[in-house]
Design a binder for these strands. Structure first.
Length: 224
DNA sequence: CAGTGGATGCTCT
DNA sequence: GAGCATCCACTGT
């Protein structure tokens, strides 16, 4: 990575990161994060599943307005919002929209690519498929806790690498799958969960896409 | 393989 | 005191 002379280094907390403008609506950011590599202290992988939450969204922690817990979600875009789930798990979100607007993207699953050994140690598991398949598992594998709440995502220990950046220079993946969000009781029909098509590292499969007329009925999903 | 329920702690009413 | 943006172990087919 070379720092070219003409481009000034961005201050921590900039809204544009890995080619994504985090000031955009969370639904758009959630789509664009699919395929981006997320590292925490060098450990992580490719994001394969996200969910969007917005200020006017009854399922969002910010729906009722600012509180001490959700404060960072009302802060600057491109920062982390970390919350405790079910008293056990830590879950990581990326804050979206300008400060004052409570929106964010929950990172639900990664395809592990970096630091597999550290993830296995933290999770007490061998199966790569289960290391980061779900927001709580991902938080544990990456060593996320309350101390990460509010941190800028463009500074250590975080690192976000867009699909076009880095060695491989792969193109952004095809349009992600979309479906209803998981584990919520309000606004359950909003299709704001996104996933990388064909990935084996999703927390749960997406409903099969509409089958073309006359297609041969396949085997009954041994997925899960 | 599907369904159920326990663990566990914090936030908000 | 309820309700979680969850995970896992355990049950029964």
């Amino acid at each position: 990575m070379s720092r070219s002379a003409g481009v000034p280094a961005r201050p921590p907390g900039a809204a544009v990161l890995a080619g994504i403008d985090f000031a955009l609506p969370s639904e758009q950011v959630a789509r664009r994060l699919i395929g981006v590599t997320l590292l925490v202290d060098g450990v992580g992988g490719r994001i394969v599943e996200t969910e969007a939450y917005d200020h006017d969204d009854p399922a969002s922690h910010t729906f009722g307005g600012p509180t001490p817990r959700n404060a960072s979600m009302f802060g600057e875009p491109g920062h982390a919002y970390v919350y405790r789930s079910y008293g056990i798990h830590w879950c990581l979100n990326c804050v979206c929209r300008p400060a004052g607007h409570g929106a964010g993207v929950l990172i639900r699953a990664l395809e592990p690519t970096h630091g597999l050994d550290r993830m296995r140690a933290r999770r007490g598991l061998d199966d790569a498929r289960l290391l980061c398949a779900g927001p709580g598992r991902l938080g544990q594998a990456l060593g996320i806790d309350r101390g990460f709440d509010g941190l800028a995502l463009d500074a250590p220990p975080f690192r976000l690498v867009g699909p076009g950046e880095g060695a491989g220079a792969q193109d952004a993946p095809a349009e992600p799958l979309a479906g209803p969000r998981i584990g919520i009781s309000k606004a359950v029909d909003l299709p704001w969960r996104f996933g990388l098509a064909g990935s084996r590292f999703l927390s749960r499969p997406f409903r099969a896409p509409p089958v073309a007329a006359g297609a041969v009925p396949g085997r009954k999903a041994s997925a899960r």
